[in-house]
Design a protein around this nucleic acid. Structure first.
Lengths: 227, 227
DNA sequence: TAGATTGTTAATCGATTAACAATC
DNA sequence: TAGATTGTTAATCGATTAACAATC
C-alpha cells in the first residue's frame, strides 16, 4: 500500500529480542559522548557479531552510511520507534510478595518508557498498603485501570498457584501483554502475548552446563579423588 | 568408549532450555497422584507440541513405552539427572539491593537442588547485615566460598555499573557459571557461562508486539479518533 | 580517487513439524 | 490380536554466518 519504510513486515522474533540490547549499547555510547559508531564497534558493545547486527538492522531500514557507520542518536531513535518506546506504556504489577515488591521499586522500567501505574494484590490484608509510593489496589480495579489509564501490560509476580486466576482477570479486563514471573504455564486466548521469566529455569540451564564442565575438567578429578 | 546411554553427546541448546519446564510439569502431575503420562498430555502441560516433546526426550534416551507413555517419576528422575539436579549446587548472590533481597528470599531456588550459601555486597555498610537468615559477606570471602563450600554458581544482582567488576571477582575466585540480572553485557573468558535475565528487555519485547496489535485493532481506531 | 563500511546475497547450520514405522 | 503411542525420519522452516558488491 505504501513505500514508507515503516510498511515493511515481519521482523524476525530473534531480531526483535536483540533490539533492546542494541538500544542499550547505543544509550551507553551516547552517554560517553560518542556520536558515530561502526557495526563492528556496536556489535562488540552488544555482545554479538557484526554480520548479525547489520542483518538485524537491515530489517528496520537503511539507517547507516557506507564507509562511515551509524549515527548513534538517530539509530537509537529508530530502534526506539520500532520497539514502540517513543510512547508511554502503563504497567501494572500483580502480587506484592518479595519479588513484586522488588519489581515495584525497580527503576530500570521507568528509564525505557514504562510507567508502573498500579500495584495490585488478591490479599485484602495487603490492599491499601503503600509500596514504592503507590497504594496497593484490589483486583476489582483492573477494568478501570485499563479504560482510565490505558493499562496495556500486566506483570504477574504471584505464586504459581494463583497465577492463572490473575492472568484470567488481566485478560478479562482487556490486558493483552503479560510478563509472567510465576513458575507455571499460563493458558491465554489468541491475541494475548505472554512472556515468561523463570529464575530457577535459568539456574537449571546453568547447572546443566556446569555439570558438563565439571565432568571434563581436572577439578573434577581432584574432587573425585579427594576425601 | 561406551554404550551407556549417558555417553551420548550434544543435546541441543533449545532442548536443554525446555527440560526444566518438562520437569516442572512432571512434578505437578506427580503431586496430583498421576503416575503415567502420554507425550500428548505432558506436552499440553508444558505448553509445547507433542512432536517437539518426543524429539526432545529422544536426546536423553528411550524412557517411554510404546503404546503406553512415560512413567512420571522415572522420567522426572532422568531429566533431573541430565540437568545435574541430583546433586546440590551452592549459589552465591552478589548485590543486596531490592532485587538481591528478593532473590535471597525466593524459595523457588531451594526446591530444585540450589542452595543459597552466601550473600555478598561490595558496600561495607551492608556487609554484616542479616538477610533471609544469612549474614552479608564482603567480596573478599569469594575465594574461600569456592574452595570451602564448593560454590559454583554466582548470581549478579548489582547495578550495571559494578556488574563487570563483580563478574571479574567471581571468575577470579573460580566461579564458572553466572546468572546476570544487571542490564549490561559481561565479558568473560572461555569456559565461563553467563546467562542474562533482563526485566526491561522482556517488557520491550512485549511493547513491540503490543504496538503491532494496537495498530491492527479497532481499539486503535477509537483511540486515534477520541480526543 | 582510495579506503572504509554498509546492506545484501547465498551457503550453512540448527530447530521445528508432520508423518509413520516400530513395538508395546 | 487390535489399539495406542513412542522414537525416528525426512521435509520444512527460520536463524546465523561469511563474503562481497555497492557506495559513501
Amino acid at each position: 500500500m505504501s513505500a514508507d519504510p515503516s510498511a515493511r513486515r515481519g521482523i524476525p522474533d530473534a531480531t526483535v529480542a536483540r533490539l533492546p540490547e542494541y538500544l542499550r549499547a547505543l544509550t551507553g555510547l551516547a552517554e560517553r559522548g560518542i556520536t558515530s559508531v561502526s557495526s563492528e564497534e556496536l556489535a562488540a558493545a552488544a555482545g554479538v557479531r557484526s554480520a548479525k547486527l547489520r542483518k538485524d538492522l537491515s530489517y528496520l531500514g537503511s539507517y547507516g552510511v557506507r564507509g562511515v557507520g551509524y549515527e548513534v542518536d538517530h539509530l537509537a531513535y529508530q530502534i526506539s520507534r520500532e520497539l514502540g518506546l517513543t510512547q508511554d506504556w502503563p504497567v501494572a504489577i500483580v502480587g506484592m510478595g518479595n519479588l513484586g515488591h522488588a519489581l515495584a521499586a525497580y527503576s530500570g522500567f521507568a528509564t525505557r518508557g514504562f510507567r508502573v501505574v498500579a500495584l495490585l494484590d488478591q490479599d485484602p490484608a495487603i490492599v491499601g498498603q503503600e509500596i514504592a509510593g503507590l497504594a496497593v489496589q484490589p483486583m476489582s480495579e483492573l477494568t478501570a485501570l485499563v479504560s482510565e489509564q490505558g493499562l496495556a501490560i500486566g506483570v504477574i509476580a504471584t505464586p504459581a498457584a494463583s497465577a492463572q486466576d490473575v492472568c484470567d482477570a488481566l485478560v478479562a479486563a482487556g490486558v493483552r501483554s503479560i510478563l509472567n514471573f510465576a513458575p507455571c504455564v499460563l493458558v491465554v486466548p489468541d491475541g494475548v502475548d505472554v512472556r515468561k521469566v523463570d529464575l530457577s529455569t535459568e539456574l537449571q540451564i546453568l547447572a546443566f552446563h556446569e555439570q558438563r564442565k565439571a565432568l571434563a575438567s581436572p577439578a573434577a578429578l581432584r574432587k573425585a579423588v579427594a576425601p
